[in-house]
């Protein structure tokens, strides 16, 4: 069971690779250096898209969790998708933080500043690290799915509160460049194109990895059920009777 047709997945992987190479060429060589920040600003082409994709990934996790909890759409597909997407969200959030830190050092003079958006992103990272930890706790699939779906939604509800609370701290971060209230982009030409290319490349990469991670999740579940079947068989043979065992515990259990 896969999310995408293997052929589409392969095409997607190639497209992601090509667009990432194009992004590297545009970001490093074609786009001009920033008037104030010179070459350091080139990190924007990675930093901003990875932040957006992280939000997208958490959005997908929240939506899939809601669809799992809603009885009419309940399916293990949503659970796996939520887990796969959260993992990518954590990955992209970590990348955002690391690249932001690398960018902050030459521009602000510090690796880290206690600015609203930085702190929100860091809290976001830990919220979903917790969620992933919960997903690793062994439990029957349905139990785990329901528990994780609720946890994902609670974390999602918390995000705006975290955002508003830390926003009341004075802000040192540069203001949003593209999605300003008037939606009037402040960057133009090649730089804007490179940024959008970054968004495209990261989106393709996200969908490609999501598909792979989803497949891995189904394989893990398969393995678990096969091990269970094997354990039951061994017990039955070991007891020398045809009676099924009363209770079989698999894995490290709860």
């Amino acid at each position: 069971m896969t999310l995408l047709n293997p052929r589409i997945s392969r095409v997607l992987g190639v497209a992601a690779l090509v667009s990432l190479v194009a992004l590297a060429v545009f970001g490093l060589f074609i786009a001009p250096p920033d008037a104030v920040q010179s070459d350091a600003q080139r990190l924007m082409y990675l930093h901003v898209p990875s932040a957006w994709i992280a939000y997208l990934a958490y959005g997908v996790t929240a939506l899939s969790s809601a669809l799992y909890l809603w009885r009419r759409t309940r399916s293990p597909v949503w659970d796996r998708l939520a887990g796969a997407s959260a993992e990518l969200g954590v990955l992209f959030t970590a990348m955002t933080l690391v690249m932001g830190s690398l960018w902050g050092r030459p521009v602000w003079g510090v690796w880290w500043a206690w600015d609203a958006r930085l702190v929100t992103t860091a809290v976001l990272f830990f919220l979903y690290v917790g969620y992933l930890a919960l997903r690793r706790v062994p439990a029957p699939l349905e139990t785990r799915a329901k528990r994780c779906a609720i946890a994902a939604l609670v974390a999602f509800v918390d995000v705006p509160i975290v955002h508003f609370s830390v926003d009341w701290w004075q802000t040192l971060h540069q203001q949003a460049t593209v999605f300003t209230p008037s939606l009037n982009a402040h960057i133009h030409g090649v730089m804007a194109f490179t940024l959008w290319l970054g968004v495209l490349a990261f989106t393709l990469l996200y969908v490609y990895l999501l598909d792979k991670r989803y497949r891995l999740e189904t394989l893990e579940e398969d393995l678990e059920s096969k091990e269970l079947a094997k354990a039951i068989e061994e017990r039955v043979q070991g007891a020398g009777t045809t009676a099924p065992p009363e209770h079989v515990e698999v894995g490290i259990g709860r």
Binding site: V123, V137, I161, S165
Partner: peptide, 21 residues
């Protein structure tokens, strides 16, 4: 859960960060 003592802080503390603030 067997891991409840270690799981609870990592789940709860980020969520209540706004309360602390």
């Amino acid at each position: 859960l067997r891991v409840r003592e270690t799981l609870l802080p990592v789940l709860l503390l980020p969520v209540v960060a706004p309360v602390l603030l």
